[in-house]
Structure formats: structure tokens, C-alpha cells
Amino acid sequence: MTATMAAKAQAGVLPEIADPMQVAPKDARELSRLFFDQLAVLEEGTAEYQYARNTLIEMNVTLVRYAASRFRSRGSEEMEDIVQVGTIGLIKAIDRFELSREVEFTSFAVPYIVGEIKRFFRDTTWAVHVPRRLQEARVQLAKATEELRSRLGRMPTVAELSQLMSLSEAEVNEARLASNGYASSSLDATISATSDGEAALADFIGTDDHALELVEDFHALAPMLAELDDRERRIIHMRFVEELTQAQIGEHLGVSQMHVSRLLNRTLAKLREGMLTTS
């Protein structure tokens, strides 16, 4: 920062910066303090306020690029897209930062930036929702696969990945399966050419869902369940919804497993008879 800039700042006049994005990180830290100091007393909505805020954003974009560089292995998204998302976090940090916190702005801003980028990956890059642990395992799997492929000159086996990742083979397979949810294809996507022309993905993956036949049975069963007493409904819920064993149900109800078995059989027989009657 030049002496002229410092003098203007001390006089309460913000220095003019031709290209804030070209300001060196060290100078950006010093200038940011001055701009934050003025931003606190400027009236929001004025040209001076907008200049101070926009300059702070542009001077600190290097923070966003630094944070974004940590996510290069997360997927095929263009880095510029990730930077744009991270910039939203930077703007939030600028709007919420106060010099009275006595903390460096960089330390304050980076969690906002990283949080916004992670939210972007969590909310927009997975075609279907999978647990966080599997999302993280997918990243670990991608890194381990690339490392072993470079080292071995071939695709690694599940056992080799398991050893490098310190996970069981079942967990590696689970991470592989979860990776299928990272991106989706349209059912109208063309996958090959046939003698009749182009073929759509939907032509090959569509199957009859026989479970749909159960919908009518469920509708018929609902009023019968409503007619059961509280204990009968509770037993049915614990057995078929919570999937408790008869012994566990007995512990909840304070009765023996044999008594639970008799109650359950009697209730199921009542429901079965009602279903046969309605059909």
C-alpha cells in the first residue's frame, strides 16, 4: 500500500484502486482493514458504500480461489463455477464482518467460503441423496483409485483399494455403489445406434413394477388397521415398521415373548380374514 493511499484513508477518504483483483494478498489485508473501517460509517446504498463493498469483494477473490483449489478432485465442475459459488460465501463474510471482532478477515472469511462450496457440492452435484459418509467415501475412493492406477498401471482391485483406504471391502463396494448417484442421465439419452435408428436409454431399462399391485391391498388394509385396538396397532408397528423382534416387543410391553407371539398371530389372522372378505 502506497503512502498516498494511507494518507487518504487516514483522512477518511477511500483510496481509488484501478484493479482491485490485482492487489497483492499482503496489501489486500492492509487495505481491507481500511475499507472495513470506512464501510462501518458509510450509509448503505450510497455510491461510496457500494464502491467500498465491491472493492473488498474484488480484492479478496484470491481467498476464494485458494479455497476452491482444495476441491479440484471433487468432480468435473469447472473451477470457475466453484469460484463463483465461493464468492457468495465471501460476500456473506464481508457483510457480517466487524473490525471489533479482533480477528483477521481471512480467518473469518475462509469458513464462509468453504461452507458455501461444500453446500454447492452437497445440494447440486449428487443426482440422488446419499449419506454424508458415503459422499466423503466417494472422494476418498476417487483419490485412492487414481493413486493406485498410476502406481500399478491398471485399475486396482477392491482388495487393493480396501488396504489403501483402510476400509473393509464391503465399505469400498458401498462407496462404489454410492458413486452411481453422483450424476444422472436422462431417460431420453441416446446410448447407441440400431438398424432402426437411435435408441433411447428408457428402451432398455424399463421394467414392470409388480409392487404396484400391492397398492390396492394397502388401501384395503388401512381401514382394518384403524379398527385395531391401541395395543394391537402398537405391536404391528413395532414388528413391521420398527422391525423389532418378538422378545424386544415383549420388553416394551412387559409381557413374555410367547404372549407377544399369540397376540401377533391373532392380530394377523384378523387382518388376513378381513382382506379375504373384501377380496
Rank of each mutant, 00 (worst) to 15 (best):
H129E: 11
T190G: 11
E136D: 07
T87V: 07
D123T: 09
T157G: 13
T267R: 01
H210N: 07
A222Q: 12
D230A: 13
M238R: 01
V85A: 13
V61W: 13
T278P: 02
A189Q: 14
Q248A: 15
L253V: 02
R272A: 09
T145M: 09
N265V: 08
E16L: 11
D217S: 11
A170E: 15
S150I: 00
E213A: 14
D230P: 04
L42H: 10
S107M: 07
E232W: 00
V41S: 12
R122T: 10
P20W: 09
G181M: 03
L177Y: 09
E216L: 03
R65I: 00
L271V: 04
T245A: 02
V128H: 01
R262V: 06
Q140K: 08
E77L: 13
I91Q: 15
Q163P: 08
L225Y: 03
S261V: 03
D217G: 03
P111W: 06
I117Y: 01
E58S: 13
V128S: 04
H129N: 03
F35H: 06
E116Q: 10
L31P: 07
R96Y: 12
P156V: 08
G89T: 14
L221C: 05
T106W: 10
H129K: 10
S73G: 11
V260Q: 00
A109I: 07
A199P: 03
Q246K: 01
L214N: 09
T125S: 05
L187M: 15
S32W: 00
A211G: 07
S166Y: 08
S162H: 08
I113T: 05
H237V: 02
R74I: 02
G274R: 06
F36H: 06
D217Y: 14
Q257C: 00
R53Q: 15
L39W: 06
Q10G: 10
E174Q: 15
S185I: 14
P20Y: 06
V83Q: 07
A183M: 10
E44W: 05
N60T: 12
Q140F: 00
R154I: 14
T207N: 10
L212M: 08
F35M: 00
D188M: 12
L201H: 05
L268I: 15
I205L: 13
S186Y: 07
E48I: 03
H237P: 01
V83T: 07
E216K: 10
R72V: 14
E44C: 06
R133N: 10
L214W: 06
D19F: 03
A127L: 02
P223C: 01
V64K: 01
I113K: 02
L42F: 15
S186K: 05
T2Y: 04
F71C: 13
E77M: 09
Y49V: 02
I236M: 11
A202D: 11
A52Y: 01
L42D: 09
T55I: 07
T245M: 00
M59L: 11
E30R: 12
A3N: 12
L42E: 14
S261E: 04
E216S: 11
K118S: 08
R272Q: 13
L148E: 01
E58C: 06
A68P: 04
V255Y: 00
N180A: 15
G45E: 09
E78D: 15
R33T: 14
A127M: 06
